[in-house]
């Protein structure tokens, strides 16, 4: 197979675009798609300070690399979850990337260690509060990323969610008819109230396979190993179903998620005002930490209180 843009050997076929690229043309294509995402969804401007949430996996390290190569001012935050073995290996990948790539671009890495903050790793914490590990992890990560971005005055927080993530999440939300989540499933979420950082997903136009190929072509040393806590997760079932549909009809994931965004855009003016208005009327500062919450005490602080006194 030959590259569709130059005479070189292709390294990746992309059936959804009916094309194929060599390494350099793939790199150019992916960076162009990310730049298009940033502009079309009004994610951030060249002068903005960005905080990237990194895990050591392909998506977040690729996102950090692309933002730096495109000339954006992007620092990163890594949350050490204290998962025996896995967290050490993922942290090592993030620290190596920081040394080898990010620091020479003037970017810095912040590390938040769950064990130091909560006195236990994520698995032990989930057992203490009697909640699934993935849900405990989600609450902690969302809270810490928002806190660090807000306290350090970053303009925007970026995550490595890709087309597969968003299409799978949309499928899950539609199957359960979770309309309140559908309203918030956008590549750009505004900083609707004081204490909430703006959140963006610049990789939403790229599939996991395209991002992994970019990482391999550009020698980004990421952790291939899957989080041991993710085994049996519903998201993986949805992704598998969507990939089976994609194999039969290339472009299915893109049509599904982008089609949803188009429909969402049609009601843009009214829905974005409604969403911001809804946030402003339903959120108030947490009585413990002051981060916005719909309850008196936010879910993170309630969880921490329960972990410190599990008999309550």
């Amino acid at each position: 197979m030959r590259c569709r843009k130059c005479p070189k050997r292709a390294v990746l076929g992309m059936p959804r675009h009916n094309t194929a690229f060599c390494g350099p043309c793939l790199t150019e294509f992916v960076r162009t798609q990310v730049q298009r995402a940033i502009k079309s969804q009004a994610m951030f401007a060249p002068e903005d300070q960005i905080l990237v949430a990194v895990s050591g996996g392909k998506d977040s390290l690729t996102l950090w690399e692309i933002l730096l190569k495109l000339g954006y001012r992007a620092d990163a935050l890594y949350v050490d979850l204290g998962i025996s073995g896995y967290s050490e290996r993922s942290r090592e990948k993030v620290e190596r990337f920081t040394r080898d790539v990010a620091e020479s671009c003037g970017a810095k890495l912040t590390i938040h260690t769950v064990k130091e903050d909560a006195g236990a790793g994520i698995k032990e914490l989930a057992n203490l509060v009697k909640r699934p590990t993935c849900s405990t992890c989600g609450t902690i990560k969302r809270y810490q990323f928002n806190r660090v971005a807000w306290e350090n005055k970053y303009d925007v927080m970026a995550t490595g969610h890709n087309l597969d993530d968003e299409a799978a999440r949309l499928l899950g939300n539609v199957l359960q008819w979770q309309e309140e989540y559908l309203q918030k499933q956008s590549p750009t979420l505004p900083a609707s109230v004081a204490g909430f950082s703006k959140k963006v997903k610049p990789l939403y136009r790229m599939t996991e396979r395209e991002i992994a190929a970019y990482a391999i072509v550009n020698r980004i040393d990421y952790l291939v190993e899957e989080c041991p806590m993710a085994k049996g997760a519903k998201m993986l079932v949805y992704k598998d179903a969507l990939n089976r549909l994609e194999a039969e009809s290339p472009g299915t994931k893109q049509r599904f998620y982008w089609g949803f965004l188009e429909k969402q855009k049609k009601a843009a003016a009214s829905s974005s005002i409604a969403m911001a208005h809804l946030d402003q009327t339903t959120l108030q500062p947490c009585d413990t930490c002051s981060q916005p919450t719909t309850a008196g005490t936010c879910s993170f602080c309630r969880m921490m209180a329960r972990a410190k006194n599990p008999t309550r």
Binding site: M1, A10, V11, L12, G13, A20, G23, G57, K58, D59, C134, C137, D164, D165, A168, E208, R209, I211, A212, A213, I216, V217, R219, V224, E226, C227, M229, A230, A233, M235, L236, K239, D240, N243
Partner: peptide, 28 residues
């Protein structure tokens, strides 16, 4: 992946080759 290079679906893997078939799906 063969060596450090990605392979497209039409390429041929020889009998003596070593390849890695790497999953790209992640997430919980």
């Amino acid at each position: 992946i063969r060596g450090q290079d990605l392979m497209t679906e039409d390429e041929i893997v020889a009998d003596g080759d070593s390849i890695e078939v790497r999953p790209v799906i992640s997430g919980g």
